[in-house]
Amino acid sequence: MLRIFIIGFGLLLHASALANHSGQHLYDQNCATCHGFNGSGGVGVPLSLPAFLDSVSDNYLVKTIRHGRPGRIMPAFKALQDEEVNAIVAHIRSWSDKPAPIYTDKSVQGDATKGKELFAAHCAICHGADGQGGPGTGVTMSRPRSLPILAPALNNSGFLASASDEMIKHTLMEGREGTPMVSFLNDGLSEQDINDLVAHVRSYEKQAGSSSMAPVEDEPSILVSESPYSVEETVDNLVNAVESMNFRLIRIQDLESGVVEEGKEDKGQVIIYSCNFSLLNEALKIDPRIGLFLPCRVTVFQHGDKVLIMAANPKKMSDVFNNRELESVCRDMKQVYLDMIDEALF
């Protein structure tokens, strides 16, 4: 009897767990941070525009969720169950009262070489010379931007695995009203031109690896050097290094400041915070989520009879945002730390 009760209770819990997996709830948890609660966009692109929903199939949405866009912020959701992915797609679809278009897998026949020329003339200005997509993020309004909506990456393995030729063709023929993407049929291209463009976009599939992130396994997690000077001297040297590198000194504080009672901080552990606001401004345009790297921080630390200078290695963390544009920023920042430390120890 009790056993049945327990099993029944278990099933009840199970049912409520499933109810939690409603499309809206799943969307809010997994997608809304970037795409907005109502699909209006943010770090991600808008998903609720009628012109978008009318031009993409459910299959495209499912595959996009599964593959993501490697190196272009949009994560691949591999751990979601099939029913969960379908529930999310149904939720997105509920923003439109029209049925989803259905495309076949038939390839569109065109001349990729001609398509390449057309692409350079008509598309590269927004989608990039190699179809790598525009800079920055979706539509986020937290800072000024050049295009109201990010031009998606077309050479991306996730996009190419999700979009059929017919869907790409439809997008070029009709455009996406309400976005910078216009109808190229109205813009003077012929249907044959558009077929050639589709063939060109499809040919990106042959450029293997163009969208993956560089591996970071071999990067050290921290940059550390031993200082021959005392903690105070090392801090003074670092302050000079910060200033000579055109960074603004923000603050020198004890590591434990604000954590332990005032006056009880260990004085042998000092953080030097600095910032170059022009570099920061550029980095925030690429991705507003980079607070993780802010502000620049070097820690001087008395460890036994040694004085160590330490910094977190930005390059080690460059893959957590799934944003290839940040790779060069992280590489440069690592160099800044190495130079700062070098100069302080000189």
Binding site: M141, S142, L255, G258, P288, G291, F301, H303
Partner: peptide, 16 residues
């Protein structure tokens, strides 16, 4: 001590 550069933990908060 290798973790020192990562503490205190930090949360980024920004307006949209």
């Amino acid at each position: 001590p290798d973790l020192i550069p990562f503490v205190p933990l930090k949360i980024t908060i920004f307006a949209e």
